[in-house]
Nucleic acid binder design. Structure first.
Lengths: 107, 107
DNA sequence: TTACAATATCAATATATGTTGATTTATGGA
DNA sequence: TCCATAAATCAACATATATTGATATTGTAA
C-alpha cells in the first residue's frame, strides 16, 4: 500500500506530470536545463525531482556539480502504464533549453 | 490533464483504495453495508464514494432510499490498470457485513 | 584554503484535502 | 400529511502538501 500510494502521490501534481513528460520527451536533463526550460525556481524543481526519484520514476546521475535526471529503467508495470497515460495527455510542452551546453548554467 | 489528475487524486488516499478494493472483492454494496463493514461514519464514507464516482471508478444505482455502489464497467485502460494494481496490494480487508439483508440498516 | 557554481534542504506561509458532527435532501410508510 | 430512514452536503477544524526565499551542502578550480 505504501509503495503504491507513494507512486500515486508523486503523480498527483500537475508540475510533476509536466516534469515527467518533459524528461520522457527530451531524455536526460540536468537541473539547470529544466530550470531554464520549464521556468521554475530551483528549490521548487529540486523538491519535485526528489519526489519523483523517491517514488521510482526518475534516476539521478551526478557528473561533477551537475545532476542529470532521466526516466528510471526499467519501470515496473504500473509506473510504466502511468507514464504511457501521461504520453497521451495534451500538454503544451516548452522547448528544451540546453543551458548547460551553450556556455554554462549561471542561472 | 484534468481527467488524469482527477483519477490520480481519487486514488491518492488509503481510505479510498480500501473502499475500491472492498467493492471490487465483494461486488455491489450499499452505503450502510460499507459503513458496517468498514466501520466508517456516514459522512466520511459518502464523501469518498462521491470522489471515486466522480473520478470514474464507481457507479451508483439508487433503489429506494438505498444507494448501491459498484465498480464502473467498462473501466478505461488506465483505471483498469490501477484497479489491477490495487488487487495485488496486501491489505487486510474486513469481512462484508450485509446489514441491509439481515434486518435493515438502522445504523 | 578560499571562492564560486550547482543542487539540496530548511523555515515560513499559503492552499488543498480529510475528518467530524450537524444539517439537509430524498424516499417510503403510517 | 407527518415521521423515520438512508444518503448527501455543509461548516469548522486538523493535517498534508506546494511555493518561496534563505541557507546549507557538494564539487571544482584557482
Amino acid at each position: 500500500m505504501e509503495v503504491f500510494l507513494k507512486s500515486i502521490s508523486a503523480l498527483n501534481d500537475e508540475t510533476r506530470v509536466l516534469i515527467l513528460r518533459f524528461i520522457d520527451v527530451n531524455g536526460e536533463c540536468c537541473v539547470c536545463d529544466l530550470q531554464a526550460s520549464l521556468e521554475m525556481i530551483q528549490s521548487r524543481l529540486s523538491r519535485h525531482l526528489k519526489i519523483l526519484k523517491d517514488a521510482g520514476f526518475l534516476r539521478v546521475e551526478r557528473k561533477g556539480t551537475w545532476a542529470y535526471y532521466s526516466i528510471r529503467a526499467p519501470l515496473d508495470r504500473f509506473r510504466s502504464e502511468a507514464l504511457e497515460e501521461i504520453r497521451y495527455l495534451s500538454v503544451e510542452l516548452p522547448p528544451l533549453k540546453k543551458s548547460s551546453e551553450t556556455g554554462g548554467c549561471k542561472i
